[in-house]
Design a protein around this nucleic acid. Sequence first.
DNA 1: CGAATAGTTGAAACTAATCAAGTAAAGTGG
DNA 2: CCACTTTACTTGATTAGTTTCAACTATTCG
Lengths: 245, 245
Amino acid sequence: MSLDVASLAHSMRDRLPPKHDAGWTLGISRPEAMAEPAEKAARHLDLPARQTILDEGDEARSLHVILEGSVMLSKLLPDGRRQIIELLGPGDVFGLCINRLSDVTAETVLPSRIVVYDRAVAESSPSLQRLVADRMKAQICALHDHAMLLGRKNAVERVATFLMRLVPNRGGQGCAGPLAAGKADQAQVHVTLTRQEIADYLGLTLETVSRAFSLLKRQGVLAYGRHDDVTIGNVCRLCQCTGSH
Amino acid sequence: MSLDVASLAHSMRDRLPPKHDAGWTLGISRPEAMAEPAEKAARHLDLPARQTILDEGDEARSLHVILEGSVMLSKLLPDGRRQIIELLGPGDVFGLCINRLSDVTAETVLPSRIVVYDRAVAESSPSLQRLVADRMKAQICALHDHAMLLGRKNAVERVATFLMRLVPNRGGQGCAGPLAAGKADQAQVHVTLTRQEIADYLGLTLETVSRAFSLLKRQGVLAYGRHDDVTIGNVCRLCQCTGSH
DNA sequence: CGAATAGTTGAAACTAATCAAGTAAAGTGG
DNA sequence: CCACTTTACTTGATTAGTTTCAACTATTCG
């Protein structure tokens, strides 16, 4: 039993993205073996980037599972302050809430394919239930990390942490660490969010995010021409900037 | 082993007054009908306040359900910065993680009763599964709110939001709002966390928390002599200070 | 090519952190 | 029971980091 879970968990973590850019350009893809349960009563959505799926306060009686692409969840304060709460990728779920109203707005970041299950269907399928429980655990851990970032990290640490998420298989618990040093430890990441979106995710202003990028560039940790194609010269060095190592 | 812990807990317990309003003094109790599933293979813990249950990085292969009391989950950065991630009450669950290691430290805030189910047991009981799924949804929503607080609210808003959580049946989605105005809208709350803990929860320093308390007191929103027994003169007025309304 | 959008950079303002001193309450030992 | 220590909280002065405001640059799109 525990061996089962262990090997599944392990394969989840080490698997590489199945397709080119879709998920991991955001660094949030965890494209594990995803149960594809009975497709009865499931609606499929095929959405372009920056499309709203669900508004804060909307009726939310269905379970959404991301097949491909990425989705961001955000909240607004009455005076317009926005916080992007979660960045989700393939396998992640959203749209579930205790009371029937969504507590967040959900919109695509990239063109995305999403399956929508009716609440009743979702709750009657054990395999779906299992998928949902596992993803929720993962998302809770991600929210824990993010609370630490928002509560205790400074601007550069936040931006560095964000960028590390974009590097597949790094920055998490299983970060290779300085072990891998010595060999060229370069990475290319594609930043799909605007500076404003990054700011709203990191609890900063877009100016502060821009300054942090510029600082890391000036220090030689990053290099970029177009602002969305970033080369990380030494991943470990960037990792050192996150405050977590 | 577990007996050891239990008896230790009992001997230390006498030093602290066991209050039975324990849960809601933190405002986090949601004492609904909680399924009490097959108690087989369940270990019960009876712990005094400020007792560590689980350390960040510990093996975490069991599901913990809070029956009574309250528990805080926290994380540390290598340089000692701490963030309290969640404040949990009766019915809430913790100790589950995708990989086998706990991502947080868990410790009691009040004397607490906790059931610990072995992972295998938890995963084989449909009723437990259901409980866990529901609680996780609720906790995710709470984490969403908290991310908004940490990312976008100022010091006074954070403290006001924290205090509102201590008022039963207020501050949430179902806040009565200014409707209830006119009648005396007073509340007494017992603050069980120290200023340092509140600060670690709200992403502030203890001095800033203290100043926010003092400011709200000076403005007549709060009154208190002993720093842990706070009278909220007008709940709606405090609610106005949270930034959420 | 001009307009619009996104990003960068600088200076000033402001909020919260830090440093430091002082007060209040609780616990300890004579 | 009282001085003494410890712990928790408060308050003030100063500093640091981020936000705000503003100007400017680069890129994308009709």
